[in-house]
């Protein structure tokens, strides 16, 4: 698998997909015009990573995301959750937010409610 790095734009986040450290990093603002199209290669890459063994780390440091991105993040966590439940994969999700960013904190709490068994950490930056 190849390492993929995508620079941030005004409305898409920085993406770092590193097969060596088995890390997915999504950082910045996410409100693309065509959210599904933007994230499809990333979800594809992740799917491949989840097929190989070893702990996976997801660092999400999002300042703002739109409702379509929320759907994509859900799909991403869903993929991970399936691998954890079905294949016993070890995964750690770090949801990193600025202290006063209640929207992002609440969104993180919503995800925790969805996936009670996932190792999902809320981390103040």
């Amino acid at each position: 698998m190849e390492k993929i790095e995508i620079v941030a734009t005004e409305y898409t986040p920085y993406i770092n997909l590193d097969p060596e450290s088995r890390l997915v990093e999504i950082k910045g603002e996410s409100f693309p015009e065509n959210t599904f199209e933007f994230y499809t290669p990333i979800l594809k890459w992740l799917k491949e990573l989840l097929n190989s063994s070893g702990k996976v780390t997801i660092n999400m440091e999002i300042v703002y995301f739109n409702s379509s991105s929320s759907q994509v993040f859900f799909n991403l966590f869903d993929q991970i959750n399936d691998s954890v439940e079905e294949n016993g994969l070890e995964a750690e999700i770090n949801w990193i937010y600025e202290e006063d960013n209640e929207s992002v904190l609440e969104a993180g709490e919503d995800f925790i409610e969805e996936y009670e068994t996932l190792n999902f950490n809320l981390i103040i930056k």
């Binding site: 015009e33 065509n34 959210t35 599904f36 739109n66 409702s67 379509s68 929320s70 759907q71 994509v72």
Partner: peptide, 9 residues
């Protein structure tokens, strides 16, 4: 969900 969004807006 549709082609261009999640329909959650």
């Amino acid at each position: 969900n549709h082609d261009r969004g999640a329909g959650l807006g």
